[in-house]
Computed example of a mutant assay.
Amino acid sequence: METLAKEVMAQHPNFANQCLKVIGESLHSRGHYKDAKRHYMLIIQKNKNLASSHFGVALCELKLGNIAATIKKSEDTINLSRYFLSAYDLLADAQESLGNLEAAQFAMVKAIEVSPEPLIDLYAWLK
């Protein structure tokens, strides 16, 4: 996947962001968390506002056991894209792993608040 993504990126620079995301996901899925984190950090250096790269770092930090960094990068992702629902889920998981159950619940409530309409009904029901 990584080789193919690099070839596509060389031939079609307008697909660079998608190809870079594929490369990071490939590294992560193969368990190369440090390499994936380094890859995502290089992307962030070039484009600080790319939420998917911040989320990629957060996923890597979780696998590397860096829970505080996972929380920070999940929050960075949410600040860049409040509809990035996977970031709320990761944030809640990280908070729960630290025993911060109220913070985990807060993250999930925030996710429900920005979710599509059917989940908003669920949120009202939970109150």
Rank of each mutant, 00 (worst) to 15 (best):
56 G>K: 07
58 A>T: 02
126 L>G: 04
36 A>H: 04
21 K>W: 10
5 A>I: 00
41 M>Q: 15
105 Q>T: 06
36 A>W: 05
39 H>I: 07
72 K>M: 10
116 P>S: 10
120 I>K: 15
76 D>R: 10
18 Q>P: 01
1 M>V: 13
110 K>L: 09
3 T>F: 11
105 Q>P: 01
112 I>R: 14
119 L>N: 12
105 Q>I: 09
112 I>V: 08
68 A>K: 10
69 A>N: 08
87 A>Y: 04
120 I>P: 03
47 N>W: 05
25 E>R: 12
12 H>I: 13
70 T>Q: 01
87 A>C: 03
126 L>Q: 08
52 S>L: 05
74 S>F: 01
65 G>Q: 06
75 E>P: 00
40 Y>H: 14
46 K>M: 11
64 L>G: 03
23 I>Y: 08
61 E>S: 15
33 Y>R: 04
42 L>N: 15
4 L>T: 10
110 K>V: 00
60 C>E: 04
88 Y>M: 05
51 A>Q: 01
71 I>A: 03
32 H>D: 11
6 K>T: 13
109 V>K: 11
81 S>N: 14
90 L>P: 00
3 T>M: 12
96 E>A: 15
95 Q>P: 00
62 L>T: 00
125 W>T: 13
21 K>C: 08
102 E>V: 11
87 A>M: 04
121 D>H: 12
34 K>Q: 13
68 A>G: 06
48 K>A: 15
57 V>M: 04
101 L>R: 11
28 H>P: 01
61 E>K: 10
54 H>G: 04
91 L>W: 04
111 A>E: 11
1 M>Q: 12
46 K>F: 06
101 L>P: 00
58 A>I: 01
85 L>E: 09
56 G>P: 02
42 L>E: 15
100 N>A: 13
64 L>Y: 02
13 P>R: 09
101 L>T: 12
107 A>M: 04
91 L>F: 05
22 V>A: 14
14 N>R: 13
73 K>Y: 15
12 H>L: 11
78 I>E: 05
79 N>K: 12
103 A>T: 00
21 K>R: 13
42 L>I: 07
4 L>S: 07
5 A>T: 02
114 V>T: 09
94 A>F: 01
64 L>A: 05
82 R>G: 00
70 T>M: 01
58 A>M: 05
98 L>F: 02
124 A>N: 14
33 Y>S: 07
11 Q>N: 12
102 E>N: 12
9 M>Y: 08
120 I>L: 13
35 D>W: 03
113 E>W: 04
57 V>K: 03
44 I>P: 02
36 A>K: 06
16 A>Q: 15
109 V>M: 06
48 K>M: 09
126 L>W: 03
3 T>K: 14
